[in-house]
Simulated scan of single mutants.
Amino acid sequence: MSSNRLRSIVPMFGGGTQYIETLDAILDFVEAHQPTSDELVGWHRGSFPNVSSRDSIMRRASYLQQVGFLHQANDHWELGDAGREYIEQGDMATLLRIMCDRNVGLRSLLYALVAGPMTLAEVSDQQLDTHPELGWSRGETDMATQRVNWLRSMGLVEKRGNEYALTEDGLQFTESAVEEWADSDWTPSVNDAGMSAGTYEATVHARTVDPEFRATVLSRHNRTCPISGVDHPGLLDVAHILSWSDYPDHRADLSNVLALSKTHHAAFDRELFTIDRDYRLRVNPEFETESDVLQRTIIDRDGERISIPEESLKPQYVTQHNAPLEWV
Rank of each mutant, 00 (worst) to 15 (best):
A32L: 07
Y63K: 00
D183F: 10
L128C: 05
E122C: 00
D302E: 10
I57Q: 01
Q18E: 12
Q34T: 06
H71E: 13
D75C: 07
L325R: 13
S291T: 06
F69Q: 00
L258F: 15
S307C: 06
S312L: 06
Q172I: 11
P233V: 01
V157E: 01
A267L: 15
T224W: 04
A202L: 08
L134M: 15
L272T: 03
N191K: 07
D302S: 10
N284F: 04
F48T: 00
Q172W: 10
T224S: 12
L235M: 11
S219T: 05
T22N: 03
V257M: 15
G68P: 03
L272F: 12
E21Y: 05
H321V: 06
V190T: 09
V178C: 04
L313A: 10
H33E: 07
S228G: 06
L79W: 03
F268M: 08
T22I: 00
E133H: 13
Q126V: 12
H76N: 13
S124A: 14
I227C: 08
F29G: 02
V283M: 06
A197R: 07
D183S: 11
G80P: 02
I227L: 09
D55N: 11
S47T: 14
R296Q: 10
A165S: 06
D125W: 00
V104R: 09
Q172N: 15
R270S: 14
P11A: 02
Q320A: 13
F69H: 01
G15D: 07
H264G: 04
R138T: 15
R207H: 09
D276G: 05
H321I: 05
P117N: 00
S2I: 08
V157C: 04
R282I: 13
Q18F: 09
A177L: 03
L218T: 04
M92F: 13
E304Q: 06
P285V: 08
